[in-house]
Design a protein around this nucleic acid. Structure first.
Lengths: 217, 217
DNA sequence: CGTGAATGTGACTTCATGGTCACGTGTGCA
DNA sequence: TGCACACGTGACCATGAAGTCACATTCACG
């Protein structure tokens, strides 16, 4: 019937939960996890707080869902970067750029990431695990870039922290209602931050020599 | 009691208030402004919560004081940078490096900065004003570096946001009990982040030409 | 000593907010 | 038609934390 154009009951549930998570993420981005109350989230969706509990077991669960949504976006964008980019540096650039744009579009601004310490119990550990796998993936990309000569030699951990810091700090200053467009600002930030990873000509030369000069012209 | 912060008699009040601010800053750095309760702060100092109210009018006031302390450190470190550094880039490097070191030493880790949105009323505006003057000072240094050729041409606002993001993100991952020493990690982060501002040899050359080549050998 | 100001305390109030529950309503299905 | 179930609601409870207050204690000083 209806050629499956009408979402089923359980699909509706999933959609509603997603709407809750999105609304919550937006609010928390602005006011922080503590500052955004469940009443706020409910109001934003035009329902009562009690209704939320049909789709979310508690606030911790909701916050965790927000973080997982954000990290899912990040991973998806890294997929894109790894697919399209040639060098380690390019993959990182593409991945971070689309991450920022998507983040601004979908969740307002990625301020959730700024305060993950509010999670308690299992949720906290699960979230740390998620974040760690993402960071490790980033580090592997840095190492790849160091091998292919697109990234300067340095401690990958530090490099990744530096990049993520530059990116997420956006939450502190970017105003979605301002003049700057998401793509524009994402470009500018990512371009500048990843400049830090670019090897100088001299460094690139020595890297090529060290690699056997097999890739030179 | 009072964690051994009681020399003079008349200055006692000021010192005690300072001790409160420091303790609060440390706790808030770890657990966030909301997560750190006044009871926690009092416990840490070995007094009761009620005693705090002799030196602090309310929690907002306390949070504001923490931010002002942090910004005061930042300004002081920029003074140092401006005094010792020759170029715009050097001033920024020195300023940020000592800021990070001092911050880790004094206030644990500068996580307060991550959540200034919790301030309410006058305190919020005053804090934003403080922060703005600091950021403007940083921007002026970037512009100076662009004039003297030590910093690549780019939007100073973006550059400053990128730097501050890299720096403050430290709060997310640096563990004071870990292996890395404050100076070591401050050096690494600042060195890498400011690399992004360095002009490439070609850019430097064109900058010198544009400036009339008056400073070349 | 004696006195008043300063300081610290425990016990209290107040309030915001997370979380629960019994109930009314609409909807799909036999 | 009527049943069962999902859904949403307003009213409610529990709790943690901010903030207050009367009182005890200590200290400077005449």
């Amino acid at each position: 019937m209806w050629a499956d154009a009408i979402p089923g009951r359980d699909e509706q549930q999933a959609l509603k939960r997603k709407a809750i998570v999105r609304a919550a993420a937006r609010l928390m981005s602005r006011r922080g996890s503590h500052g955004a109350t469940l009443d706020d989230v409910a109001d934003r969706l035009g329902v009562s707080k009690a209704a939320l509990y049909r789709y979310v077991s508690n606030k911790n669960d909701l916050i965790l869902a927000c973080h997982e949504e954000a990290l899912a976006i990040a991973e998806r964008c890294l997929d894109h970067g790894e697919e399209k980019g040639a060098t380690g540096l390019e993959k990182i650039r593409l991945g971070l750029r689309s991450y920022l744009v998507e983040m601004i579009r979908e969740l307002g601004v990625p301020a959730l990431i700024l305060e993950e310490n509010v999670l308690q119990g299992d949720a906290a550990e699960r979230n740390y695990a998620n974040r760690d796998t993402y960071e490790q993936r980033m580090r592997r990309l840095v190492a790849e870039g160091q091998r292919d000569g697109s990234i300067v030699q340095s401690e990958p951990k530090i490099a990744v922290f530096m990049l993520l810091g530059s990116i997420h700090w956006l939450a502190k200053w970017y105003c979605p209602d301002g003049d700057w467009q998401p793509e524009q600002v994402a470009d500018a930030i990512v371009e500048l931050a990843t400049r830090a990873l670019e090897p100088s000509p001299a460094e690139r030369l020595s890297a090529e020599l060290h690699a056997g000069a097999g890739t030179g012209p």
